[in-house]
């Protein structure tokens, strides 16, 4: 050890440089987008637009937090987009039909949790590959949401429903509170509890857990349930912002969430990463979309751009893993 520490190359390496080499891609993307957009478009660095970005990013961040835990277990949840659509549709239909708000909220959270339970059980107990399981529930959630509304939007939501997006508490908008609460809760779960330690362990070395005789199936299922519940919560904000619930409202969101997680430095292998990076990753994706909007790039190109960004990010990640 002491010999290695004395190595001239190691001595000269400054802390800043080490950080710069290890920092997740999201930092660089965010910095780059920030500089380019501030110079290029006068509308970007204004309080109104930045608030707009923060509000837009709230939904993505909450979903991405759940996705981070799933990816830390070497899994993936492709169903979160349609699950968000289904939860939004279910809650809106109940509210429009006259049920009290708490019942609608509970039902949506129950649906998100139940689909997470299905995903988690098939992955953790039956041992099926996560992407195929969640692709199956993708179709199921999408179908149920479309059947419930017969392909239409749920409109004429009661005025109080908009509180989820428009409400302000202590001068801070409700979506920001929700994001902060989701982050704090996930932080405590991930870094302060047994659940969190098992999340890292399931991704890091499942064989060792098995050999040690640790029963982790319940925790593994819990990860997918937690992602589903967070997605249900995000669906309220999304529906309130649109002032309508459409079954395809969440399609593609799972993709942005995966991009946010990967850009935030969480790796697909061996349980490396964490949720702090995911926040930056979600901001980077949000600013990228917002910037492309401001620059007048159409939605179609935006979709292709995020596709390129995600592949590049994972590619750089795997090259780094090779070098270290």
């Amino acid at each position: 050890m002491s010999e290695a520490a004395l190595h001239p190359q190691l001595i000269r390496r400054s802390a800043t440089l080490v950080w710069a080499r290890k920092a997740p891609g999201a930092f660089y993307l965010l910095a780059l987008m920030g500089i380019v957009l501030t110079i290029w478009t006068p509308g970007f660095f204004t309080a109104a637009n930045l608030t707009n970005v923060a509000l837009q990013v709230a939904v993505l961040t909450i979903v991405a937090l759940g996705m981070t835990l799933v990816i830390l277990t070497e899994g993936i949840d492709l169903s979160l987009g349609p699950v968000l659509g289904l939860c939004g549709v279910a809650a809106s239909l109940m509210v429009v039909a006259g049920y009290p708000l708490p019942a609608a909220v509970a039902a949506a959270i129950g649906i998100g949790g139940a689909l997470g339970l299905l995903n988690g059980s098939l992955v953790a107990v039956a041992g099926m590959p996560p992407f195929i399981v969640t692709l199956g529930t993708f179709g199921i959630a999408q179908s149920i949401a479309t059947v419930l509304t017969r392909g239409d939007s749920v409109v004429q939501l009661p005025a109080y429903y908009r509180w989820f997006n428009d409400g302000v508490f202590l001068a801070i908008p409700v979506p920001i509170w929700a994001t902060a609460a989701a982050f704090a809760l996930t932080w405590v779960l991930l870094y302060e509890t047994k659940f969190g330690r098992y999340v890292f362990a399931i991704g890091g070395n499942r064989e060792a857990l098995k050999l040690a005789g640790t029963r982790v199936a319940a925790y593994h299922i819990g990860v997918y349930v937690y992602a589903g519940v967070l997605t249900a919560i995000a669906s309220f904000i999304m529906t309130a912002r649109m002032n309508a619930a459409h079954p395809t409202i969440g399609v593609g969101l799972e993709f942005d969430a995966i991009a946010a997680v990967i850009l935030g430095g969480t790796s697909f292998e061996k349980g490396n990463g964490g949720i702090a990076g995911t926040i930056v990753g979600a901001l980077a994706v949000g600013v990228l979309r917002n910037g492309l909007n401001l620059l007048g790039v159409g939605t179609e190109w935006q979709v292709a751009c995020v596709g390129v960004v995600i592949i590049t990010a994972v590619g750089i990640d795997s090259i780094r893993a090779l070098n270290s």
């Binding site: 993936i76 492709l78 993709f255 995966i258 596709g307 995600i310 592949i311 994972v314 590619g315 795997s318």
Partner: peptide
């Protein structure tokens, strides 16, 4: 590129 197949092709899907 050493990218897991489901990520590489998922990115390609959107492109």
């Amino acid at each position: 590129g050493r990218i897991p197949p489901f990520i590489a092709t998922y990115g390609m899907l959107w492109i």
